[in-house]
Computed example of a mutant assay.
Amino acid sequence: IFMNAPLLLAFVFVVAMSNLIVSLFAGKLFRFRLEEILLACNASVGGPTTAAAMAIAKGWQGLVAPVMLVGTFGYLIGNYVGTLLGTWFSTLV
């Protein structure tokens, strides 16, 4: 990926860091715990399986089921929103 698509790697890094910064800011603004913020950020980037693995590895057993649900709902909503936006953008081109 360093040789063939370095710009894509930089773009993904910027998006992931922006997601983390906005999540931390909004989470602190709404007074969520740091564990919840980090797991929500992980679920939005890596999906429910990586977020559940992180929760288990860190010993946050009470957050495994909620993060699986949040990640799955993110897949459900994201697929439809992504399809809708892709269709809309294709009509603009």
Rank of each mutant, 00 (worst) to 15 (best):
L24G: 09
L24C: 06
F25I: 10
F25A: 11
A26M: 14
A26R: 10
A26V: 14
A26H: 00
G27L: 01
K28W: 02
L29P: 03
R31M: 00
R31G: 00
R31D: 04
F32V: 00
F32Q: 05
F32S: 01
R33Y: 05
L34A: 08
L34W: 12
L34C: 06
E35I: 02
E35L: 03
E35T: 07
I37N: 00
L38H: 08
L38D: 04
L39G: 01
L39T: 03
L39M: 05
L39A: 08
L39K: 05
A40I: 12
A40C: 12
A40Y: 01
C41W: 12
C41F: 15
C41M: 10
C41D: 15
N42K: 07
N42R: 06
A43I: 11
S44Q: 11
S44W: 05
V45N: 07
G46C: 12
G47W: 12
G47S: 07
P48W: 07
P48S: 08
T49R: 10
T49H: 08
T49Q: 15
T50A: 15
T50Y: 10
T50D: 07
T50V: 15
A51Y: 02
A51T: 05
A51V: 02
A52R: 02
A52F: 02
A52L: 04
A53C: 04
A53D: 10
A55S: 11
I56V: 13
A57M: 09
A57E: 15
K58H: 07
G59R: 06
Q61L: 08
G62H: 11
G62W: 09
L63C: 03
L63A: 07
L63Y: 01
V64H: 08
V64C: 03
V64G: 02
A65Q: 11
A65E: 02
P66G: 05
V67H: 07
V67I: 15
V67L: 12
M68F: 09
M68Q: 08
M68A: 15
L69H: 07
V70F: 14
V70T: 06
V70S: 10
V70Y: 13
V70M: 11
G71V: 03
G71R: 03
F73S: 08
F73T: 05
G74P: 13
L76M: 13
L76S: 06
G78V: 04
N79K: 10
Y80V: 11
Y80P: 00
Y80N: 06
V81H: 05
V81Q: 02
V81A: 09
V81F: 06
G82Y: 03
G82K: 04
T83N: 12
L84V: 10
L84A: 15
L84I: 08
L84C: 10
L85I: 14
L85V: 15
L85S: 13
L85M: 15
G86E: 09
T87H: 12
T87D: 13
T87N: 13
W88M: 14
W88R: 10
W88P: 06
F89E: 00
F89L: 13
